[in-house]
Design a protein around this nucleic acid. Sequence first.
DNA 1: GGTAGTATCCTAGACCCTCTAGGCAAACCG
DNA 2: CGGTTTGCCTAGAGGGTCTAGGATACTACC
Lengths: 189, 189
Amino acid sequence: MPRVGMTADRLTQAAAELADEIGFANVTVSALARHFGLKDASLYSHIKNAKDLRARVAALALTELADQVAANMAGRSGQEALSAFANTYRDYATQHPGRYAAMQQDLDADGPAAAPARRHAALTLSILHAYNLTPTAEIDAIRLLGATLHGYITLELTGSFRHTPRPSQSSWQVALTALHTLLTNWPED
Amino acid sequence: MPRVGMTADRLTQAAAELADEIGFANVTVSALARHFGLKDASLYSHIKNAKDLRARVAALALTELADQVAANMAGRSGQEALSAFANTYRDYATQHPGRYAAMQQDLDADGPAAAPARRHAALTLSILHAYNLTPTAEIDAIRLLGATLHGYITLELTGSFRHTPRPSQSSWQVALTALHTLLTNWPED
DNA sequence: GGTAGTATCCTAGACCCTCTAGGCAAACCG
DNA sequence: CGGTTTGCCTAGAGGGTCTAGGATACTACC
């Protein structure tokens, strides 16, 4: 028997690639085993179960994305930081729709994706520092910001904007400008 | 054999209720058959397949929600219409998380959900009339509006806002006010 | 009221996915 | 070089999707 020398990390990496190709929902333990020429049962010594595999893909994606966000935001603040943050998110989702979908699952608080998820929260917060908001306003702003970006990317990815001729890119620019204006003139609590 | 007298509509209704109870992802043809005391295979004379069932649930939810939105928006315009629209959406998602999840699927353009989906687009547009936007601005605004509301509701439903003590309701009010202000002072194209 | 037809439900079975139990053999380690 | 680890295997249970073909409750018409 030619031994492949599998590890959980190799499985996770391959699952992420598979997700981008065939859609996250279609990533199964069976499909992954086929991809490596192994039997389904063989994978269960590396991963706990299918849910664990999905959580690992989410962790991989969250880490990759956080790395890119941190790199692209370095040295920027205010509107520049906001644009870098938002565009990195959107570009990642476009290039890696399967990985992006993996992040949207209900993630257990004690799963492998918990730590990178906290990193994302911290990065989002760091954008808002330049706008000098009160603590309460900061919470409202982070929620609104997250909602708008996540909502836009999701709708764009599911094709909701394809019914209208106007390029999505143009509406995206307008949305980013609007968010910046809003953060600059945030109403008093 | 006591005959139940099944119809596609009864199946769809039961599937929607099941979705709110156990989650949309767990709604299977098998579970539905069990619920009625029938065999799996018997359902396939009423629905085409599992995907068809899910699309029917989405159509049911979209129609229900559009009815509520239309009723609650009647006679209102401007900020009142915006609030009525947004709150109806959010309340529906809270009360019917399974149905709301059903709406988020990739829906075929020729499936049973296509017509109600168009109704939603028209209702959303009707909010913007009071703000007197140019046609281009209207497209950008409808995208931003949809993204923000959908994003907020999704994040709230998946528990993203539970890590912070501030009530989600307060942030929601702030977000609605911000959207109204933005629409009122929409930048020139 | 008998009969013809249709709609509802059934059994049987193929196929795919998840996951456990138990076994063999390659790789590593003292 | 013998022992342990572990990567992979076979076997099999259990559940979901879906098709083919058959039995039977209802309906409608003469």
